[in-house]
Design a protein around this nucleic acid. Structure first.
Lengths: 349, 349
DNA sequence: AGCCGGATTACAAACGTTACAAGAGCGCGG
DNA sequence: CCGCGCTCTTGTAACGTTTGTAATCCGGCT
């Protein structure tokens, strides 16, 4: 009766034996306690405690119970943006007794493909993905094979999948409109070596805003790319600064693909002795915790990271619902104006 | 023969039928291809592609194949420290085809217990945990029941478990010695509402260093605690600043439990018009990406976050090894001196 | 005393996979 | 021409659950 922990795992069989009942009675205690006589139930419960019974999830899955595990495929789970996103997913899932299996692709389509395979094999409840591969056929296949897929920040077109997104074009527009209204006429857009969809759309938003302001994007917009060794994105950005400073005519503002890159940009500008925002303005993207505390405080585009994850998880959980229909949840970005942006310097044409 | 994706999942039975062989032959193609005649093998492989076969992990597990899933239980996966840690875990695991199931306890022992249960049920390959509950018996039980447990930053004593740790006492000492050598004689230690082991040990390290310097900890060390609504740790810290500033005699330096809190402290000091480091010095902990870019750049204690996770995952993977012996991997913290620390102001006694 | 119904509990099959033992087919030497 | 050994394939049982159906027990009724 005491807590003698049998070594190794014990299953219903051991419990049944210890309680002097059949395996199915043990099963009944677990899944339909009401049909078991109270006395028997107690005996079985005591036996479960005595042998240290832990139900075996995989076996249950085999019998059709859905897995409590949800896969999350992002570019990098250490990136604070995705870390917050995953946390939002986790919070929504935990209310349903589910958990996040967090995976990083490091922008490599091959890795993404491999992860999709692994997750399918695990028969997860579903997959939430920020796709790097623009081709959606694989995702559709996964979905058709029975693993629900929720897209994050991917243009869904008429795909038969659920999605959550924040409007990246609008985000780019916000940043550019702000700079234009301050008087900037030549703006650098700093991106990585490869453009995930969201970054490309932000650039597109910038382009649209410039055009709308009567500027010629071909002149007003300077494209800069970092050599993206994914982990050291801070220092890569610092190196990109040199390139921007060497451009003629010189941009008077930089829009960065995210706050982490902006961090590196500020560092690089500081090292180069260029003052922000007096000599050049800097805009970030994401509004991470530290953005407001940088020197100078970073003007950036806010994204509802936690809510985004939560919404994705909620859509995923709803897929179990028999009358579920695929749909899309939208969020709007918001500009946070802080100290890193100001009118361009006078001599800056 | 074409890629007609059957809706829903298909198993070996469907493959066998499509290839005109028995289920066991399909199984052989998968697990011991060499014993299958090349011609048959090709036929089966084509059939697998045709029906879109995906192996069913849980069923394999039932037959004894270990799960590729590893649980990671930390205080908060959105916290950059743990996000980096998880990334280290993921990197080591991915080399072995494994994945991280990332969970947050939010400092609640009850949640930790619940997660341990869920992970056990999933029959994960093992669990890597930064425990909040100081009582190790539950963890030992989990381990005895067949789920390997790796501790992170937990005093292992003679527990029969693997562990990785960075020496928190030494970290506290580093911070305090630095401040003492600058001339500080009254130092505030800012902690959360509850102390996880690591924070308590850092405080202990500070105390030891002060004593070693001939100071009386009862006078030289001021304990301050934040009301810890876990998510808004930045603003909670800002509020704690008021409390510190009101203390008499006034501390001339603050050691924060982590960089995130330091972020809030800098913000609060800024709002209160107190200059750092001229009027007060601030030391962080963790050395997160942004620490070097704060204003002023934050002096902090560096922890090898990624390596810590990697080491934990490697220990866990080694548990499968038949001649595995439980052991401990140690790391040393390192002080990063930057601009947020300086000698105390003159009048500050 | 035999039978019935309700309340409990037991049996058996199935989920998708693996591994072992056993079977089928075949060429070769005796 | 038979049987042997070889290669390749298949049948079968088992992993720990769940679930539908059958079996058992009981008291009460006729």
């Amino acid at each position: 009766m005491a807590d003698r922990a049998g070594l190794g795992r014990s299953g219903m069989r051991e419990v049944a034996q210890a309680a002097g009942v059949s395996v199915s009675t043990v099963a009944n205690v677990l899944s339909r306690p009401s049909i078991v006589a109270p006395q028997t139930r107690h005996r079985v419960e005591q036996a479960m405690a005595a042998v240290g019974y832990v139900p075996h999830g995989p076996a249950r899955q085999l019998r059709g119970v859905p897995s409590p595990i949800v896969g999350s495929i992002t570019l990098d789970l250490a990136n604070p943006f995705y870390a917050e996103l995953n946390r939002g997913i986790e919070d929504a899932l935990s209310e349903a007794g589910c958990m996040v299996l967090a995976c990083s692709t490091d922008l490599q389509p091959a890795k993404e493909k491999q992860l999709l395979g692994l997750l399918q094999e695990q028969a997860v409840r579903g997959i939430i993905i920020s796709p790097i591969d623009p081709d959606p056929t694989l995702l559709l296949q996964v979905s058709q094979r029975g693993t629900p897929v929720i897209l994050i920040d991917h243009p869904r077109r008429q795909l038969d999948l659920c999605a959550v997104a924040v409007d990246d074009v609008a985000g780019g527009e916000l940043a550019a409109e702000h700079l234009v209204s301050l008087g900037h006429r030549r703006i650098a857009f700093l991106a990585g070596a490869i453009d995930p969809g969201p970054v490309a759309r932000r650039r597109e938003g910038v382009r649209l805003a410039l055009t709308a302001a009567g500027l010629d994007p071909a002149r007003a917009l300077v494209d800069v790319r970092m050599s993206d060794h994914h982990r050291s994105s801070v220092s890569a950005a610092a190196r990109a600064v040199a390139q921007i400073l060497a451009t003629r005519p010189a941009p008077t503002a930089i829009i960065c693909l995210n706050d982490t890159a902006a961090l590196g940009v500020l560092e690089g500008l500081d090292a180069a002795g260029v003052r922000v925002p007096d000599e050049i303005s800097v805009v970030g993207y994401d509004d991470l915790h530290f953005a407001a505390r940088l020197s100078p405080a970073l003007t950036t585009v806010h994204q509802p990271k936690h809510q985004l994850g939560r919404a994705a998880a909620e859509l995923l959980l709803d897929e179990a619902n028999p009358d579920h229909t695929h749909r899309e949840t939208h969020f709007r970005p918001a500009l946070k104006v802080r100290a890193s942006t100001a009118p361009p310097p006078r001599r800056g044409r």
